[in-house]
Design a protein around this nucleic acid. Structure first.
Lengths: 392, 392
DNA sequence: GTTATTTAATTCGCATTCCGTTAAAAATAC
DNA sequence: GTATTTTTAACGGAATGCGAATTAAATAAC
């Protein structure tokens, strides 16, 4: 009981960023007495801080000025990471989700043995922590966001484009190496929470995010919680079947995956750009130069995505869908055909329910999302009402 | 707080059917003291009953015998209904979900004006209540399960094959006519809860149900709760897009809907059978007689369903999928091609996660599911942990 | 037939937590 | 200084939940 109220107060403070006790009691429907008791205990535990100035009401109010409460950034530190096939981005973040240090490693890791990848990640985490002037034992939790199908609950990576192996118990592997609790999560889920806390879904507890990267991922937020399949399984949109062709099933990934758009030849015109993680940017310049083959690929990919998107909206009917990922960089041809296919495929009965939003986040945002996953586990919401955060 | 525990105790009793206090305290982790207090209040309110005999342990145990507690069937009565295009089925059920009376009306209502349909439903409800030797004012709640896209929260019917109009506020309409709180819910959601309480998902809090009737519907159970879209919107699987053909999008309904399988000619060979609601049964006899046109249609429908099913499993990754609905009556050709297309389309990464279960429930089960929807509202789960019920 | 044993359920007393009210303290505007 | 507003503190009352002891009801043992 106390735990619930305590969490609600803490969560209210987080959402508001900075808030007076009276306001907390207003929003949580708790008496000022109780709020005072709980905030006193939170202050005691060092989870929040009091600031004498900062009352945002009209400067000229009489009466005792409000004491603003806010999260204590130093209450915890976590590391979030986005692990992609050709780059890794790490952030160290404080208890508020604010980034303390960033590290980007541009290197191609896919198809390396697990041990090598784990080595590189371990290295990145350690370096990023040092960059933040911290030691690893000051880190409370680490969360790695990877592409693929991941069982969050068990930390099992069922399949991932960056692993040769399937069924890797990666959370255990990394926890052992780092000596810090390590969570493994789908990168799409991470960016979904990032948008919920800081981005374009701050105002919503229900939404869907589609990530168009090397892998096509999905994040569904329902009642402020990530919707996970059995065992906390993440979704892999690329596995969606769009039809049956002459040589078997046609999956979304084969039309709209990175390699489908850019071509998969190891010695092709993109090989070098892709290796450097600049495939999509390079593609964009070629499209601007009216490279018809590429424009065609982008249009086909957009159509496939639009159709898949319509199906997802049919199933989830969210008020908002956020599209993110490197493929957005393809620009007009891709986006226009996506939008067109979407509006063609969306059934009339739910037209107008869903709003499409495109967002080109930096990789840092993805890593920050992973940090949010870690923070949410620390917050340990008893009844899971973690909601949006303040405008930064 | 008390409300939570009270609900949990009540729910535990419902799931167990018959259970001693000590066992409740075991399962709920509440102290025997608290359980005693709560059960006393439940007994006082007439929601549960005590039975001296019925201790199921080995007959020869020493000690004070257990007093078994069970739901009081008379604590509430609800009406559940399945409204389909060519028939209506009503049940009156008690507080346990047990059926007290049934009424089936075989009549074609689709495309009638709202007023006519409402008249017929009102009539059916009233007659079924009388059949149960009850008066309407002894009914606590009514729930109507209809096909289509329905906003449970508002009682709005966005689209339904049985209504000419769109955007009908049907809950309000029927509440007014009956003078009883009336809930409107998707028929697929109703049968989903029926399976959760009484059927093939008693042991699961997470599962997906696909209903293959005139309309193709979906029910997703997540943490013991129905997963609803924005505004409690129900899903319409028939709107899923399977590809783009020469004349626009190809939707699942156009391949696997009832009219797609049976043909849509008003004067066709099925016209009469369909009108009588025996379309699928008739089709089955023709298939058994090796009617190739129909077998072909069934196979195409099965393939389309299997593919759509694989996509749904890709998105939700439930441990079990239950398939229900009249189309299952088509038999081998349909089921085999469905299974084949499914196993072809299911991505290897989640192979083995999901178990397919086919179930040919009677219409009464659907109506019973609607009754469960009504009962759940009465139970008013504070934290929504309503789970499975005992084998009957 | 009486007593001991075992198990189930209830009663009693205690601790916690919350709320409401009231009062006091703090801090500022007028 | 006085008025105003926020925050803290204190007391009483109410609800809840738990542990320990007690009662209840049956069987086993003698």
């Amino acid at each position: 009981m106390r735990a619930i109220n305590r969490f609600n107060v803490l969560d209210t403070i987080r959402r508001a960023g900075s808030i007076a006790r009276i306001e907390i009691s207003d929003r949580t429907q708790l008496s000022t007495t109780t709020v005072s008791a709980i905030t006193a205990s939170l202050l005691d535990d060092g989870l929040i801080l009091a600031r004498t100035e900062g009352d945002l009401r009209e400067a000229a109010t009489r009466g005792r000025p409000r004491v603003m409460l806010e999260l204590n950034p130093d209450a915890a530190r976590v590391v979030g990471a986005k692990i992609a096939a050709n780059r890794m981005v790490f952030v160290v973040s404080d208890f508020c989700g604010e980034v303390l240090s960033t590290l980007t490693l541009a290197l191609r890791v896919d198809r390396q043995p697990i041990g090598v990848i784990a080595d590189l990640i371990e290295d990145g985490v350690r370096r990023c922590v040092v960059d933040a002037n911290l030691a690893l034992d000051e880190i409370d939790s680490v969360c790695l966001g990877l592409p693929g199908v991941i069982e969050h609950r068990t930390g099992h990576v069922r399949t991932s484009p960056i692993f040769r192996e399937t069924g890797v118990d990666f959370a255990k592997e990394m926890s052992g190496r780092l000596g810090v609790t390590t969570i493994v999560e789908s990168d799409a889920h991470a960016i979904t929470l990032a948008h919920h806390w800081f981005g374009k879904a701050r105002d919503l507890d229900d939404m869907v995010l589609v990530s168009l990267e090397q892998t096509l991922g999905l994040g569904v937020l329902h009642g402020g919680q990530l919707f996970r399949g059995a065992g906390g399984l993440s979704h892999n949109l690329g596995d969606l079947v769009l039809g049956i062709g002459p040589q078997g099933t046609i999956r979304l990934a084969s039309l709209a995956g990175e390699s489908a758009i850019l071509g998969d030849q190891p010695s092709g015109r993109f090989a070098e750009a892709i290796r450097l993680g600049r495939g999509m940017a390079h593609a964009k310049t070629l499209i601007d130069a009216e490279d018809n083959a590429l424009i065609g690929a982008a249009i086909r990919a957009g159509e496939a995505c639009g159709m898949a998107l319509a199906n997802i909206v049919t199933l989830f009917a969210p008020p908002r869908v956020i599209l993110v990922g490197s493929s957005l960089a393809l620009g007009q041809p891709f986006l226009d055909s996506l939008r067109e296919a979407y509006s063609l495929a969306i059934p009339p009965s739910i037209k107008g329910v869903t709003e499409l939003v495109f967002d080109q986040s930096t990789d840092e945002t993805w890593a920050q999302g992973a940090a949010v996953v870690a923070l949410r586990e620390l917050y340990e919401s008893p009844w899971g009402t973690t909601g949006p955060a303040p405008a930064l």
